[in-house]
């Protein structure tokens, strides 16, 4: 009888925890969704704060160029190296170019760019907005008769949607250059064959879908990171928690949305 009771208690506790976790998950997802919709809607409502938008574009886009470019270059070089190993077995080294190009345009460039921006700008968004929340700066904006969502979140969403495709282009371009360096200098493919095969196999659609993915990822990560910061509570520790949470959820979401988009596109 006693063991039965203990078992019942444990079962109850399990469902209790399950319920609490799913309820948190649902309210969090709902919160991010509302934040994403409202934040973007307010971009079309005056007043338009161009200075804020440009500032965010500079931070999210311009300041990420070095790290995105460097990662792109090395990704292309690694891809060329690894695929050369397999293609050498078939004497089909000229296909290294298209392999590198297709991997980059369809998958690696948008996903890596989004992960890099999450780590660099997404974490900063969550931390900055979280600090504004706990130091009452967001309340101060509200009590001045200004919509804090429109002032703080909207420019970050728009800037991310605009800048991610550009960073994606940079990543892809430098990745192709990296692939070229290895193919020509290490594997021994001619420069003409490298580019010729890329133009033959890679279509405009591949590039376009990559850009589209990047834009969607930009929207997703900025919506998540701003939401986490905006709802931070509990002092310095709370801001730290919000930042970690933002980076983790945004990174995982990139892969989930990547799967969904890939399934829809191809």
């Amino acid at each position: 009888m006693d063991t039965m009771k203990k078992f019942q208690e444990k079962l109850l506790l399990f469902f209790d925890k399950l319920g609490a976790t799913s309820s948190t998950f649902l309210s969090e997802t709902g919160g991010i969704f509302i934040n994403a919709i409202r934040g973007l809607y307010l971009a079309f409502v005056p007043p338009y704060r161009w200075r804020n938008l440009l500032k965010q574009m500079e931070f999210i886009g311009a300041q990420s160029t070095f790290i995105v470019g460097l990662t792109g270059l090395f990704t292309g070089m690694i891809l060329a190296f690894q695929s050369s190993h397999a293609f050498r077995l078939f004497r089909a080294e000229t296909l290294i170019g298209p392999t590198v190009a297709l991997s980059l345009t369809r998958e690696l460039a948008p996903v890596f760019t989004a992960l890099l921006v999450t780590a660099r700008a997404g974490s900063a968004m969550a931390a900055e907005i979280g600090t504004m929340r706990i130091s009452e700066q967001i309340d101060a904006i509200f009590t001045m008769g200004i919509d804090p969502v429109q002032y703080i979140i909207t420019p970050r969403l728009v800037a991310s949607i605009l800048m991610l495709p550009l960073l994606n282009a940079l990543f892809t371009f430098l990745g192709l250059i990296g692939g070229h360096i290895i193919s020509v200098n290490v594997v021994g493919v001619t420069s003409f064959a490298y580019w010729d095969q890329i133009f033959y196999y890679v279509t405009a659609e591949d590039y376009f879908n990559g850009f589209l993915k990047a834009a969607v990822f930009g929207y997703v990560i900025s919506a998540i990171c701003t939401h986490m910061g905006y709802n931070a509570s509990g002092g310095a520790e709370g801001v730290g928690r919000a930042t970690t949470h933002a980076v983790v959820v945004a990174s995982v979401s990139i892969f989930i949305f990547d799967y969904l988009l890939t399934a829809l596109m191809y």
Binding site: T131, E136, Q137
Partner: peptide, 13 residues
């Protein structure tokens, strides 16, 4: 309305 917050709530940036 004007509001003076306990911490000042000045924009630190």
């Amino acid at each position: 309305f004007g509001m003076l917050y306990q911490s000042g709530a000045l924009f630190d940036s």
